[in-house]
Nucleic acid binder design. Structure first.
Length: 421
RNA sequence: GGAGAGAUGGCCGAGUAGGUCGAAGGCGUUCGCCUGCUAAGCGAAUGUAUGUCCUAAAAGAUGUACCGAGGGUUCGAAUCCCUCUCUCUCCGCCA
């Protein structure tokens, strides 16, 4: 949520920023609702003040007639208050629901562009590998060697589910361990293992709700939601908290499964394990003082990239333009890894700075010292990394001519004596 | 799932014949004094949200709300009533 005061005091500026996002946002309507709300609030507060005074007078008044006269007066005032506050409640509800759908304001450095075609690849890392043979796709290798079972995945769950077997199941497990270990041992993140199911406030707090409910799984019985990313439970660990400055920055690395409905047109991205309803991910989450957010974003990106560097995988960094920013982000970079079999750049991480946008929704604050007032923190996160696509990259980049996978050096400790999958 | 107890400010903990309670007291914290330094002692300050006035802004002044959440009774509720949530203890069940 953006600060309503921005709309109140700099309406035209906010409108211009929203234009950069190429979305239509009812800023004028919000502005007017806010005006009306404040006026009503002022009036009803004045009435309450009068009521309070009268009530106190009743308490000390001796004369019975005066007492009952004043009681009648307060009753009349209460009726007025009731009318005003009903209206106020309605206004606030409308205002709030509109505000919850206002996206974050982009950072000034984000290039203006209408959609993903205007994202900018800003750097390439690690050479693409040269093959003396035509590299196969991960799904060809997986099916041929019985390392992925797509049919049984569909049988037990449905479309876009698969079963990893043997070496591939182990590879995923090794990658999870490797990623967590790297972030904890070399990048100073604190590992957390959060619930995979959360209450509704969490999804509102990080901004998935109310706008994106159609992409989330929910258990109607308990009212709990399956996490679409570890960002949700981990950021919300600090919901409604005021953190002391010396706790910041908080850096967490968390493994979770992620669940998304991914209501794509049938046939898109259906091959392989690139996009499923359930996937594993190691997520990096930071809670920081606002003035450090931009440098923390840089180091977060570097931490995510480090995984790919240690695996020696070719990848590139993409700067996301305004039109392709996610709802909650003020600035975002994607990391894409190259997979030679399917010949695609695959998004394995999306690193975002949310500024105070999520902190406002989730009410996460900090105090610079004991006497200073609480301010909103900035939150950031990025995948570190998404498992299926790193799997694809490892499988396809490390394949041998005869369909085996050479274990990358960084993963050796997780494979013991095995050199090939 | 069954039975009982409870939910007050950063923490502990008063406060039920409803009124002057945003809330005693203690601890902690901050600032000042004192002291060779530290401790002790003394003094002061110390919640959040939101509105209005003032200001270039901050500061400041002032209003309102908040004693788990929501609703009700009343002129008036932390205090009474209802619903819900959570925590603790005991029993049952279970990986």
């Amino acid at each position: 949520m953006i600060d309503i005061k921005l709309i109140r005091e700099q309406k035209e500026y906010v409108k211009k920023e929203m234009e950069k996002l190429f979305v239509s946002v009812p800023i004028d309507e919000i502005f007017e609702l806010d005006e009306a709300k404040r006026k009503l609030l002022f009036d009803s507060e004045n009435l309450r003040n009068i009521r309070k005074t009268l009530s106190k007078e009743i308490a000390s008044e001796k004369n019975a007639e005066t007492v009952s006269a004043k009681k009648e007066e307060v009753k009349r005032i209460n009726e007025l208050i009731k009318v005003q506050e009903d209206e106020l409640g309605e206004l606030e509800e409308r205002l709030n629901s509109l505000m919850l759908n206002v996206p974050n304001i982009p950072d000034p450095e984000v290039p203006v562009g209408k959609d993903d075609s205007e994202n900018i690849p800003i750097a390439y890392f690690n050479e693409k590998k040269k093959f003396e043979f035509e590299p196969k796709t991960h799904y060809d290798i997986g099916e041929k060697r019985d390392l992925i079972d797509f049919e049984r995945g569909v049988k037990i769950s449905g479309t876009r589910f698969y079963v990893l077997k043997k070496g591939f199941a182990k590879l995923q497990r090794a990658l999870i361990g490797f990623m967590l270990d790297t972030h904890v041992n070399y990048h100073e993140y604190e590992e957390v293992y959060p619930p995979f199911m959360v209450n509704e406030e969490c999804l509102t707090g990080t901004g998935q709700l109310p706008k994106f409910s159609e992409n989330l799984y929910k258990d109607d019985d308990s009212g709990m939601w399956f996490v679409p990313t570890a960002e949700v439970p981990v950021t919300n660990m600090y919901r409604n908290e005021i953190l002391p400055m010396n706790k910041l920055p908080i850096k967490h690395a968390a493994y979770t499964a992620c669940f998304r409905k991914e209501q794509l047109s049938a046939g898109k991205d259906t091959k392989g394990i690139k996009r499923g309803h359930q996937f594993d991910k190691v997520e990096l989450v930071k809670i920081v003082a606002p003035e450090t957010a931009k440098e923390e974003l840089s180091s977060l990106i570097a931490d995510a990239q480090d995984i790919l560097n240690r695996l020696d995988l070719p990848h590139r960094l993409i700067r996301i333009c305004t039109g392709d920013l996610s709802f909650t982000a003020s600035e975002k970079f994607d990391i894409e890894v190259y997979a030679p079999g399917i010949n695609e750049w695959l998004e394995v991480s999306s690193c975002s700075n949310f500024g105070t946008f999520q902190a406002r929704r989730a009410n996460i604050k900090f105090k610079r010292d004991n006497n200073s007032k609480a301010e909103f923190v900035s939150t950031l996160n990025g995948s570190g990394l998404a498992l299926p696509r790193v799997m694809i990259a490892v499988i396809e980049n490390y394949q041998t001519k005869d369909g085996f996978i050479k274990v990358p050096g960084a993963l050796k400790p997780y494979f013991g004596m095995e050199e090939f999958i």
